[in-house]
Design a protein around this nucleic acid. Structure first.
Length: 749
DNA sequence: CTAGGGTTAG
């Protein structure tokens, strides 16, 4: 076999491109696929009329007719032919009766296959194998295995075909233990060198999550075919090693083995993971050259690739071209792609645009008469949680109840998450409790929810319950646990959990865990210890950690450490405009003008000039966007009047505006004209208060962090209006109630 | 009587 290049991923990808460009169907010796011929299948009566009234019919006459039944999956025709064979006595031929078992199995009629199998006077190995294959292919892998056990008990020897069928059952059961025992049989019966055996073993280990053994099984196949290559490429892709998948694909191209639509689909999905648009485009053109682009899975993968790489227009074009062949999975890929884009979006505008597009597509999907499934629902719930649109989320919740998909674990977890992210922890809790089964992910989701709502005690209690239930936490669970500790300033607990994570669960701490720990030290004002703790990190701290330190040093008045952290932060050249504002504010308040101009210059270099403050609010299915000091909405006079009125009352209750420095460009303008500043969230809140009923919570999304003044101000507004106000800003969720915020006042700088 | 592909949650 061709050797696999062992160079770094990006280098490999760059090197791959010229090679791929040279590719053409001829260069890899690919036969143009033969057009699929229309199958002509006679109705039962017609089939019987072919046989006529003749009573001495040989097996050979039935076989082609039964073959057509298999191709058409026609149980009724098979039954008619079977009945006819019984009448003529042809079914006494062991070959025909065995074939009939296989026909029923292939037509997914396992009950009939079993009945016939049980009546067979001589069960040969082919009949046994047909039964096992049948169960394995008809989502009854457990029955497949028990038939295999029956076979062993009856003293029959399995063949490579039989073992392949059992292995496939073990794969769908994800049972490594069982599979390894079958692997033992493979060695015992000396069928290791059989290509299909190797392929089945590769699939087994891949499905059981043992990538190393899967690759080993592949390497041991002496004559590798397309299926071997496709299997190993898929194995890498589905076990989190997309780079290896792509390397293997290139290695494959150096052999005589041509890729087919299965291979290309798998390769495209790996391109999606590493967002290799350039490579993906070449694979796309290869699909066209090889005539594989009409395959639905290939098309879906291509569309999903463009989606994931942010080419919505291109994806839409492919989607529209698919016209009437659009199936549910295509809709789902579109929605999932948009959800992904939302997560990868560099700014809130792009994220919102993708999310709103997904809502639109989901509406189209429902109107098309197609029934959404668990994939659609879980993606949509994740989109609703990101957009903080509770009403739409509730509608989807209702739809999941009606369609019965609520009992799905993934949908259930997504629902818990949606309620949490929309600020409704009570409903999240209800959804969590009502789940028929809880996985690690549902526990994690709820723990994180409590933590984000500032309910640290409940978060930690739930974590202990999870452990008691015997569910193993992962990295993300511990992020939730540690951030719960940091919210409540529980340093000792945090240290203990950090240790537990490493020692008891063998989980390596990542950046997020360190960020939580540093955050605790900073909250408690123990800045020196925060620096000491960072010494123990196995990697360089990132901009998030440094900005926590800068902000902490600033609020605790430790300027010396603050400047040190700031220098480090500047070296990293963060991509986030808000971080620069943090630095600017610090340098301005210290009168360090040299650094101020340095930061300004960096911002220009990084093209982070304009900081635009925006907030969004959903009212009755419509989205309203506001900027700072926005006067564009017809209701503006009422909104400003309401705000001034509330501010007046708030001052009476003790609200004082801090002398914060203002840097956003709107504010600079406002200062020049000597007008007061109303940040966008205030306007969105005012609009929400005016346009929703008396006790409805107001939910606002903001593209920047809430400033300290607004944060204080909203607290008073929540008292004065007796309303719950939820703001999701660029950093965290704030839920204001009765003058208090769930963030514990540590979320605003 | 075999073997392989597309969409989901924290």
């Amino acid at each position: 076999m061709a050797s696999i290049p062992s160079i770094s991923v990006t280098a490999t990808l760059n090197k791959l491109e010229p090679d791929l460009k040279k590719l053409s169907p001829a260069s890899i010796g690919f036969d143009k696929s033969i057009p699929h011929q229309e199958l002509r299948c006679p109705e039962p009566q017609e089939a019987l009329s072919v046989l006529g009234e003749c009573t001495t019919i040989e097996t050979a006459t039935y076989v082609p007719l039964l073959q057509e039944c298999i191709d058409r999956r026609s149980v009724s025709n098979a039954r008619a032919l079977h009945a006819h064979a019984v009448k003529t006595g042809a079914d006494r031929d062991p070959f025909l009766s065995t074939f009939l078992v296989n026909v029923y199995a292939k037509c997914a009629s396992m009950a009939r296959a079993r009945a016939l199998f049980d009546e067979l006077p001589h069960r040969n190995i082919v009949a046994w194998t047909s039964m096992i294959t049948g169960y394995a292919h008809n989502s009854q892998p457990d029955l497949a295995v028990s038939v295999f056990v029956e076979l062993l008990d009856s003293g029959v020897y399995p063949t490579n075909y039989t073992l392949g069928a059992v292995l496939s059952a073990c794969s769908s059961l994800h049972s490594l233990k069982l599979g390894e025992q079958i692997h033992g049989f493979v060695i015992k019966y000396r069928v290791e060198s059989d290509t299909s055996m190797g392929n089945s073993l590769c699939t087994l280990y891949s499905k059981c999550g043992d990538l190393e053994s899967a690759v080993k099984a592949f390497r041991r196949i002496p004559d590798k075919n397309v299926i071997s290559w496709t299997t190993v490429i898929t194995a890498c892709g589905s076990n989190g090693d997309a780079e290896m998948a792509l390397k293997l694909f290139v290695a494959m191209l150096w052999t005589d083995c041509a890729p087919n639509e299965f291979t290309l689909t798998s390769v495209l999905s790996s391109c999606c993971v590493v967002q290799a648009l350039g490579l993906g485009e070449q694979v796309h053109s290869m699909c066209v050259k090889l005539g594989c682009d009409s395959s639905l899975p290939v098309r879906n993968s291509i569309m999903y690739l463009y989606m994931k790489c942010g080419k919505i227009g291109e994806a839409r074009r492919i989607f529209n071209e698919m016209g009437t062949t659009v199936r549910l999975i295509t809709w789902n890929a579109m929605i999932a792609g948009l959800a992904q884009m939302m997560d990868n979006a560099s700014d809130e505008f792009l994220a919102r645009r993708s999310g709103m597009e997904a809502l639109k597509i989901f509406l189209e999907l429902n109107r098309s008469g197609t029934k959404p499934d668990l994939f659609s629902f879980s993606s949509m719930l994740s989109i609703c949680s990101r957009l903080v649109v509770l009403e739409q989320g509730e509608q989807i919740h209702a739809q999941t109840i009606k369609t019965g998909f609520l009992s799905d674990i993934v949908v259930g977890s997504a629902l818990v998450n949606m309620y949490n992210k929309c600020g409704s922890i009570e409903n999240a809790c209800k959804a969590f409790v009502e789940m028929p089964t809880r996985t690690m992910i549902s526990w994690t989701s709820m723990i994180t929810g409590y933590s984000q709502h500032g309910r640290s005690r409940e978060a930690l209690q739930l974590f202990e319950e999870m452990r008691l239930a015997g569910v193993r936490p992962n990295q993300i669970t511990f992020v939730g646990v540690l951030s719960a500790c940091s919210h409540a300033g529980m340093l000792d607990e945090a240290k203990a959990y950090f240790k537990m994570m490493k020692n008891e669960y063998g989980i390596k701490p990542v950046m997020d865990h360190y960020a939580c720990m540093v955050d605790i030290f900073v909250r408690l004002g123990r800045l020196g210890e925060a620096f000491d703790f960072m010494e123990g990190m196995e990697f360089e701290p990132n901009e998030v950690i440094w900005s926590i330190l800068v902000a902490g040093c600033r609020s605790h008045g430790n300027m010396e450490l603050g400047f040190r952290a700031a220098e480090k932060l500047l070296e990293l050249k963060p991509k986030d405009a808000e971080t620069y504002v943090l630095l600017l504010n610090m340098y301005i308040s210290a009168g360090r003008w040299q650094e101020v101009s340095k930061v300004r210059k960096l911002m220009k270099e990084e093209r982070l000039g304009g900081l635009k403050d925006w907030s969004w609010i959903n009212v009755k299915d419509r989205v309203f966007a506001f900027r700072a000091d926005d006067h564009s909405h017809p209701q503006s006079p009422d909104m400003y009047a309401l705000l001034e009125n509330l501010l007046e009352k708030a001052r009476g209750l003790g609200y004082v505006a801090h002398g914060e420095l203002e840097v956003a460009e709107e504010e600079e303008k406002a200062k020049m004209f000597g007008v007061s500043v109303h940040h966008s969230e205030r306007l969105a809140i005012a609009f929400g208060l005016l346009n929703t009923h008396d006790c409805a919570p107001v939910r606002v999304v903001k593209n920047m962090s809430v400033c300290r003044n607004c944060h204080d101000c909203v607290k008073f507004v929540s008292i004065l209006t007796r309303r719950e106000i939820i703001i999701k800003d660029s950093k965290r969720l704030h839920r204001f109630r009765d003058g208090r915020c769930s963030c514990g006042d540590f979320g605003a700088f």
